[in-house]
Amino acid sequence: MSTEKEQSRFGKIWSNYRIVFVFIIFYIVCTLLTHGKFGTWNNMSTILRNASTIGVIALGMTFVIIAGGMDLSSGPVLACVGSIFIFLQGAGYPLILPVVVCIAAAIGIGLVNGLIITKAKIPPFIVTLAIGIIARSVTTFICQGKTVTGNNQDLFVKKIGNGSIGSIPNPLIIMLVLAVILTIILTKTKLGTYIISVGCNENAARYSGINVERIKIITYMIVGACTGIAAVIEMSRMVAVSSVSSGQGYEFDAITAVLVGGTALEGGRGTIYGTVIGAVLLQFVNNMMVQMNISIYLAGTLKGIIIFLAVFLNSRNRSGS
C-alpha cells in the first residue's frame, strides 16, 4: 500500500517536473560523455550565457503561445530595435536612453502585432511574419545593409552582455530575474489566469467576461518587451548590429525552446521554468559538438535528436496525467 502511495507520489512529481528530470538526465549523460568537462561551472556558465538571449525572447514567447498565438517577428524585431540602440549609443547619449527606447520600440511593435491580429482578425502567423519582414527591411535601410558599430570604447555597455556578478554571467541574471517576474505574473495574478483561459478555450473565456482581445494584445507586448531586453543583451555583447545576421532565426529558436520546455503549441498550458530549461538544452547541442569534437556537418542531426528526445521524455504519459 505504502509502495503504491510512494509510486503515485513519484508519478506526480515526475508528471509536474518532467522537464527538470529531462534536464538532469541530459546533464549527467553529457558530463559522463565528456569525462566531467561538460559539468564544470566554467563550461556551464558559457552555456548559460549563450542561452540567455534566446531564453529571454522565449520567456515572452511562452505567454504568446500559452494564449494560443505565435510570434514570428522576434528575430527581425531584435535586429531592428538593436540598430536603434546602436545608433543612439554610438551617438553618445547616456546609456539609459538607448536601453529605454530599444525596449519601448519593441513593446510598440508588439502592440502593433497584437492590434492587427485582434482588430483585423488576421492569423498571428501571417501578421507577425509580415511585421518581421518589414522589421528586417527597416533594419537593412537604417544600417544601409552594413554592420554598424556603436561606441565600443564604452566598457560599461559591454558589461551588460559580457560581465559577471561573482561568477554568474550578467545575461543569466537578467534572464532569471525576468523568469521569476513572469512566473509570478503567470501563476499568481489574474492576468496569468486570463492568459491561460484564453489559450485553453477562447470562446469560454469570452463568455466568462474576459476581454480576450486585450489579453492577446498584452501577450504580444510582453514578448515585445522581452525581445527589447534580449536586444540590449545582444547589442551590448558586440556593440554592433548586422542588418542581415543579427537576430537571424531567433524566433524559431525561441519557439523551439518554448516547446522543448513543455508548453503546448495549441495553447493553454506551459511553464516559465520549462522554457528556461528548454533554452539551455538547445545550447547543450552547440557545446557538446565542440566538447566531443563531433563533425560540424552533424550539428543539425544532434540538435534534432536532442529536441526529439527532450520533447518525447517531457510528453510521456501527458495524456494520462
Binding site: 568537462k37 558559457t46 555583447r237 552547440n286 557545446n287 566538447q291
Partner: peptide
C-alpha cells in the same frame, strides 16, 4: 562569439 566561447570552455 558563441562558437569561440564553446571552444574556449572546451
Amino acid at each position: 562569439f558563441e562558437a569561440m566561447s564553446n571552444l574556449l570552455a572546451a
